[in-house]
Design a protein around this nucleic acid. Structure first.
Lengths: 207, 207
DNA sequence: TTAGAATTGTTAAAAATTTAACAGATAAGT
DNA sequence: ACTTATCTGTTAAATTTTTAACAATTCTAA
């Protein structure tokens, strides 16, 4: 189950969320075209993704939602759950902690970091905030494998380097500053302003 | 200059930001491979993108940074600037307003909305917060063309519908709830948790 | 019980995106 | 001046991602 296309992995996460909603609404089975409608993609794509993860639906009945959620979980989650740190307790950092707190997933934020004395040694949604100086120490002590960088862009490269030397395995960079990591570390970058500029571009060119 | 590939548009935004940084650092010209290194892509891709927008560099000297910034601006920005509303003044909403406030770009947040009385009728980074009930009225009065939805997921579809009937042209949806819009409205969706789960997946499968 | 409609699973085709290849041009060094 | 390095610009190839096409299967209902 290793070589899933990047895009399929993304969609699997989305499927799972939608499926969980459906489950909560009392449904037990779902058709490919229903999933497709929920996510605004095509049913072919849904079926293809499901094929790729080796799952099967039953004809004229669709896919068993519980089973799919379980299977996607097996593919994406680890048994023990993954331990995460948030570096930078500004708005975005807080938003992440808040989301994950409510969500009760296998992804747990177990530490946060900042340099602002008003934030250090407090807890936000059960997550303790340490001084940035203690980054390596805590990452290693708490066996944290994933870091979310939500600091001001200026300091992001340094934070990134420290995360890497502390032994982190994956980084989600929310600052607009592009980062560098060695091959064995997975890096995902996202920049809100680029998203917005993209919208602006297409709005402009639709007129 | 209309039919640029989606991905090229994204990269142009990133080029511009990096180029502005270089400008601030005193550089006047830059090679394709330098841009590539800044953004962790290949120089071929940079040259190809630049070709697509009809710009030319000078051999052995590279691209004139100021010119490129200007050209990208012409492609992405509108002359008058674009007027934006943020709906939902939680952490993410605030983060957007804060970013754009500092950035002094052609994208201006001119109104925000919430239902929390503590937030309504206050201003945050010069942006006034209205009650959600006044959405249509203000959107139209203020000639707002782009909406950023950062509400709780539950209410996102309703907000979306109201934005559309108010005549908005582009929506950036930051809630995990997928939305539907008519063809003439551009919709960009982003979900932080999916990004994080993707990182988690690749971390798991690299071990 | 047979025809028809609905739905999955899969292979093949198409479209989008990235990467490679390389010709052409310029500067620098000899 | 000549050679070599370096860069750009562009076409072609490769890869990735999406979409189409369709056989096979199951349910429904006449």
């Amino acid at each position: 189950m290793k070589n899933l296309p990047d895009k399929t992995v993304e969609r699997l996460c989305q499927y799972r969320r939608s499926l969980n909603n459906q489950l909560a609404a009392g449904k037990t089975h779902i058709f490919s075209h229903e999933i497709a409608n929920l996510l605004h993609i095509t049913s072919v794509q849904v079926r293809r993704d499901i094929m790729l993860i080796g799952h099967s639906g039953t004809l004229r009945k669709g896919y068993d939602i519980k089973e799919m959620v379980k299977l996607i979980g097996k593919i994406i989650d680890t048994k023990e759950g993954q331990r995460i740190a948030v570096i930078g307790m500004g708005n975005i950092g807080k938003a992440f902690i808040h989301y994950l707190y409510e969500k009760r997933s296998k992804l747990k934020v177990v530490a946060s970091f900042d340099v602002n004395p008003d934030k250090i040694d407090k807890t936000y949604a059960d997550v303790y905030c340490y001084h940035l100086d203690r980054l390596k120490e805590i990452i290693q002590k708490e066996d944290i494998k994933i870091g979310i960088i939500t600091t001001p862009p200026m300091v992001a490269p340094e934070v990134c380097e420290n995360l890497v030397t502390a032994g982190i395995k994956g980084i989600l960079n929310f600052t607009p500053k592009p980062l560098s990591v060695p091959d064995e570390v997975y890096l995902e970058e996202y920049d809100m302003i680029t998203s917005l500029e993209k919208v602006a571009f297409f709005v402009k060119h639709n007129e």
